[in-house]
């Protein structure tokens, strides 16, 4: 038994190296002097990060991506909060079916979501711009928001709500003064995760972007130029760090939401 658990441990660490190998190349080669991404390394340099400062197309793409990520994460969080509140608080006919339907984009191949949205937009004669991407991303992010908000609402004690109503608050007041503060960390986690996912999303943006290129679509175009590779690696490094920071922040809020609810003594 102990021998097999030793092998298991060796496997686990080897597998972990496999999982990390590609991502670790990002920082290694974005600080490497050579323009060619290959070993041996030739020296330390900040030049590829510096090169990013002078790419106007990148700055436009970044601006578009920020608009898309902020708008779609807010919209998706509103939709997710509504859906999650409805399904965790009330029991009603058609609940499970409609929830499954709203969650479907989680598992549908993205190309199908992208193509079908594009078909409709073209048929309606709508010009593709930043808004078409925002709508597509909102559709994609809403299920993630529902999952996060579900765990926030599920821990909510019904008696707090009843107490507030008994004490004379109306429904709006109860929501605003009792429920909202308790699920606020969940909402912030949902916004941060949505923002991160939207910032990284490629397929939907690729189909719906029109001329308002987003960051991943810009990166996709850069892949064709071998000369720009190291700068693209540098950009990837920055994106990785930003994603990790946003994620740690959202994890912090998610835990806080749980702690906040646990701190209220449960009568049962």
């Amino acid at each position: 038994m102990s021998k097999s658990s030793k092998y298991l441990k060796i496997f686990a660490f080897t597998y972990l190296i496999f999982l990390y190998a590609p991502t670790l190349l990002l920082p290694i080669f974005s600080f490497n002097k050579s323009q060619i991404i290959a070993f041996p390394l030739t020296g330390f340099s900040f030049q590829w990060f510096e090169a990013l400062l002078y790419q106007d197309a990148l700055h436009d793409a970044l601006k578009n991506s920020l608009i898309v990520a902020i708008s779609s994460s807010i919209l998706a969080t509103i939709l997710g909060t509504l859906a999650s509140r409805a399904t965790t608080r009330y029991d009603f006919k058609g609940k499970q079916a409609s929830l499954t339907f709203i969650l479907a984009p989680l598992i549908l191949p993205e190309i199908i979501v992208g193509v079908s949205l594009l078909i409709v937009l073209i048929q309606l004669g709508i010009t593709l711009n930043v808004w078409s991407v925002i709508l597509g991303h909102t559709l994609l992010l809403a299920p993630f928001s529902i999952i996060i908000m579900n765990s926030a609402f599920n821990n909510l004690d019904l008696s707090l709500e009843e107490a507030s109503m008994d004490l004379g608050e109306n429904q709006f007041g109860t929501f605003y003064r009792v429920i909202l503060p308790l699920v606020l960390p969940g909402i912030i986690a949902s916004l941060l995760i949505g923002f991160t996912l939207s910032l990284d999303e490629f397929i939907i943006a690729f189909f719906l972007t029109g001329t308002d290129t987003t960051l991943p679509v810009y990166i996709w175009a850069q892949f064709r130029f071998p000369k720009k590779l190291p700068a693209t690696m540098a950009l990837g490094t920055i994106l990785l760090i930003v994603s990790l920071m946003l994620l740690s922040l959202s994890e912090y809020f998610r835990r806080r939401s749980r702690m906040l609810e646990d701190s209220i003594p449960n009568k049962n």
Binding site: T23, L24, D200, F202, P216, G236, S243
Partner: peptide, 10 residues
Amino acid sequence: IPFWTSYLIR
């Protein structure tokens, strides 16, 4: 952790 780089870049 390594999967929070975009799918595209990975």
